[in-house]
Design a protein around this nucleic acid. Structure first.
Length: 260
DNA sequence: TACCAGGACCTCG
DNA sequence: CGAGGTCATGGT
């Protein structure tokens, strides 16, 4: 995977490849960064692939779980890909509300290519995600032009403004001890409901117990895996997830993957 | 052509 | 306070 990072105003393009001995190798396709920047990027890659999490306990639990057991065999080694940037995670979740994923990707891509910064005008076509400072200054119609609903446009601008104003900050959320407290804070943001809050906690904040139980994709994955006639209801899902305690985020990520 | 999409808000009664 | 309407459009 190749990706652009921006650290201290410096754009760096990194290719991450897997070595046969299971280590990851980082190659810098742009000019080699200075020591501190390189170290910062190494840390971001570790977070990106959630490498600090030891999956042994998850696999041990999942091996004894009738729903997850086939998934950990099929997708062995899969890690929860994290979205470090809180604004990006919130935008992706909001854009994904109530539309099919293919369309969500279209909206996401369009948003990035309209308001983001193109890092490498050459071959790679890499972009830096739009800055909240940029989006906070937009009018609702600027986002509606990209085929977002009025609501989604308002939500995204509102989130951007909250971040710019310092009312919403990843570091603050990470400092909190109580994940229920974090969830409440997120749900208080206009446009962030229970699903979006859980999704952002799962993808951005690394909350292992985050569980977007309302998620249609999750429902469909369970329906498909269990060969059910209809999608399971909340109580059935809660029941299935009893044994997943502490690993809800990973269970969800593996279930998502089963849909691909 | 209908109906569903990795929801959330708003408006009623 | 809960049920139902609304949003915009792509995929199937």
């Amino acid at each position: 995977m190749t990706r652009a990072f921006k650290v201290a105003g410096e754009a760096v393009i990194v290719r991450v490849s897997g070595l046969p001995d299971k280590r990851l190798q980082l190659d810098f396709l742009s000019k080699k960064p200075t020591g501190a920047v390189g170290e910062a990027i190494r840390e971001q890659v570790i977070e990106w692939f959630d490498l600090q999490t030891d999956l042994a306990a998850f696999y041990k639990m999942a091996a004894g779980d009738s729903v997850l057991a086939p998934l950990i065999t099929r997708h062995y080694g899969l890690r929860l890909l994290r979205i470090h940037n809180l604004f990006q995670a919130l935008c992706w979740a909001i854009l994904g509300q109530q539309v099919n994923l293919a369309f969500a990707y279209t909206l996401y891509r369009r948003f990035i290519e309209t308001f983001g910064e193109r890092i490498d005008p050459g071959e790679t076509g890499l972009w830096h995600f739009p800055l909240p400072e940029t989006i906070a200054q937009l009018a609702v119609r600027d986002l509606m032009r990209l085929q977002n609903t009025r609501r989604k446009s308002e939500y995204i601008i509102g989130v951007a403004k909250a971040i710019v104003a310092g009312e919403l900050c990843r570091a603050d959320l990470l400092r909190r001890q109580d994940s229920e407290d974090v969830r409440r804070t997120l749900v208080n943001i206009r446009g962030v409901g229970p699903w979006t809050a859980s999704y952002v906690m799962m993808r951005c904040l690394g909350t292992p117990t985050a569980f977007p139980i309302q998620d249609i994709g999750l429902h469909n994955a369970l329906k498909q895996l269990l060969k059910l006639e209809t999608k399971p209801d909340m109580d059935e899902i809660r029941e299935m997830a009893q044994g997943w305690r502490g690993w809800e985020a990973y269970a969800t990520f593996y279930l998502y993957r089963s849909l691909l």
